[in-house]
């Protein structure tokens, strides 16, 4: 499947250990990795060649990561995965608001990293999730057949609830922002209010979650959006 073209990833991080670890992990899985250590080098590398994905560390020596993210978004459409440490939650949310597509908090596992990278690249190329059927904790979701069962019993979802669930499942374990949900469910010409989406999400949870009041699968990402947890 990866034989068509080698996908290129640009890593922007000033810490050499992180660059080394990311390179090792990603190259082992068939990606081509370029590394730069500063914002200036990043802009230079990006004008020379456009990668398929950018991994951006929020604390850079020469420029604020959030500002760089915002700047790149003005002329680049490639997905951006933000790396942050715990104390940078505020920066992380700001980066997601200005156009980053997902985030990883350091320290992260190789599995998490690869899952995020794959999900972002898949979405960017418009490829449909390779998992049309997802099954966890007695919940089965068959996107293609538009069928959801809970403990082998059919769950009846409204079209909007199903659309929300399918965009979340197709991006399983990945952050989906409120505006991405609005785009995917209602179309890009509408910007649907977060409260409206929340009402549908609340109904969706009542139908598919074991404890609707304490959701385990359709999780809230504070201030940003939702994430479907499949672990």
């Amino acid at each position: 499947m990866k034989a068509k073209t080698t996908e290129r990833v640009l890593v922007i991080d000033d810490e050499s250990q992180i660059r080394r670890a990311l390179t090792t992990i990603l190259e082992a899985r068939g990606y081509a990795v370029d590394c730069v250590a500063s914002g200036a080098e990043a802009v230079e590398a990006l004008t020379a060649r456009t990668p398929h994905l950018i991994i951006l560390d929020l604390s850079l020596p020469d420029i604020d990561g959030v500002a760089l993210c915002e700047q790149l978004r003005t002329w680049l459409r490639v997905p951006i995965l933000v790396l942050s440490v715990r104390s940078e939650e505020t920066d992380k949310i700001a980066a997601l608001e200005t156009g980053a597509d997902d985030y990883l908090t350091k320290p992260f596992s190789a599995g998490e990293l690869v899952a995020r990278v794959r999900a972002l690249l898949r979405r960017a190329t418009g490829e449909v999730a390779a998992v049309p059927v997802m099954s966890i904790d007695g919940l089965t979701i068959d996107i293609a057949a538009r069928r959801v069962t809970r403990d082998a019993e059919d769950v009846l979802l409204t079209p909007i609830e199903f659309s929300i669930l399918s965009v979340l499942v197709q991006n399983a374990d990945r952050l989906v922002t409120w505006s991405q949900i609005s785009d995917a469910v209602w179309g890009p010409e509408y910007l649907v209010d977060v409260r409206t989406i929340r009402v549908h999400v609340s109904n969706l949870r009542k139908k598919i979650e074991r404890h609707p009041a304490v959701p385990r699968h359709v999780l809230t990402e504070p201030g940003v959006g939702l994430r479907f947890d499949s672990r």
Partner: peptide, 30 residues
């Protein structure tokens, strides 16, 4: 930095991050 959320979403987010063995010991009265 306040945002709007339901208390159950908070509980869910915390419990999800626990190791599976711990997660199974948690029940809810929400």
């Amino acid at each position: 930095r306040p945002t709007e959320f339901e208390v159950g979403e908070l509980v869910g987010a915390v419990v999800t991050r626990l190791p599976r063995a711990s997660r199974e010991r948690v029940t809810y009265a929400v």
